[in-house]
């Protein structure tokens, strides 16, 4: 099976952000970057499928030159090759990113195209479904369990307070939720091997970009926390505050 996994470079989840002087981005000084969390689950899932049933994993990213490192990390985990669709800066237009990816994926002979369900930074969660539309492929989003057999997929999708089991034919586009696979750490051997794996770089065909960043800011701080007491003795005071101050009881 030939699987493409579309991945994005994103800050590490422990990051405490500062806004850059420009006011339209984060200050990247001292920030660690990695494969965006849900994308890394998709990479791991794809590797497990091809290790069991044969085939290869190709990783594709839309981003600046800095995303080479992100693709290289996926290669060190076991992906066969990578493609960077290069941009001059971050892109906030999901449709533009989908156009660039569809342009690359078209005619690639992929049985399955995987995405993380949402990118950690821009958090739109739209590129997978848009790419599927542009390619005319069936699409299942936010999948926490996926079985593939005989050219078909069966997936579980969590809804609020419910879950769906869906069936679909391959080739298809699937976006991955948590719970599907825990990403491996690259081995030393994997890291060495990744240095020799093909990583192509070419300009992203974004087309008309209609969503632009105007400002980034940190959300308003919560008021500082308050400890109202210790042990069960503090419960009456808590109940009073929930009734009189928070008015939720």
């Amino acid at each position: 099976m030939k699987i493409a996994v579309c991945i994005k470079r994103a800050p590490d989840s422990e990051t405490r952000f500062r806004i850059a002087a420009s006011g339209t981005g984060i200050d990247e000084a001292g920030v660690k970057f990695d494969i965006s969390d849900f994308d890394s689950y998709a990479v791991e899932y794809a590797l497990q499928v091809t290790e069991k049933g044969g085939g290869e994993v190709v990783v594709i990213s839309v981003g600046t030159d800095a995303s080479q490192e992100t693709l290289r990390k996926a290669l060190s985990m076991g992906a066969a090759s990578g493609v960077l669709l290069k941009t001059d800066g971050p892109v906030f237009d999901s449709m533009a990113v989908a156009r660039a990816l569809a342009d690359e994926l078209q005619g690639g002979g992929y049985d399955l195209v995987l995405f993380g369900k949402v990118a950690a930074d821009t958090a739109a969660g739209a590129v997978g479904a848009m790419t599927a539309e542009l390619l005319g492929l069936p699409c299942v989003n936010s999948v926490s369990k996926l079985d593939l057999a005989d050219g078909r997929g069966t997936a579980r999708r969590d809804l609020e307070g419910a879950a769906e089991t869906v069936e679909f034919p391959l080739p298809a586009v699937v976006s991955i939720d948590e719970g599907i696979a825990r990403p491996r750490y690259p081995s030393l051997k994997g890291i060495m091997a990744a240095k020799k794996k093909p990583l192509e770089s070419k300009p992203a065909q974004l087309g008309d970009v209609r969503v632009k960043i105007a400002k980034m800011e940190l959300p308003a701080d919560r008021p500082p926390g308050r400890i109202i007491g210790e042990g069960a003795a503090a419960v009456p005071e808590l109940v009073r505050l929930l009734q009189d101050e928070a008015k939720v009881l």
């Binding site: 999901s94 449709m95 739209a126 848009m130 542009l134 989003n141 969503v211």
Partner: peptide, 24 residues
């Protein structure tokens, strides 16, 4: 609204219309 279902459907609509899209 960007519920699980809304998140699933809205981007497809945008792509079909070739529309600009803003999420969540």
């Amino acid at each position: 609204v960007a519920s699980q279902t809304g998140r699933d459907i809205a981007p497809r609509v945008a792509a079909k219309l070739g529309a600009a899209f803003a999420s969540d």
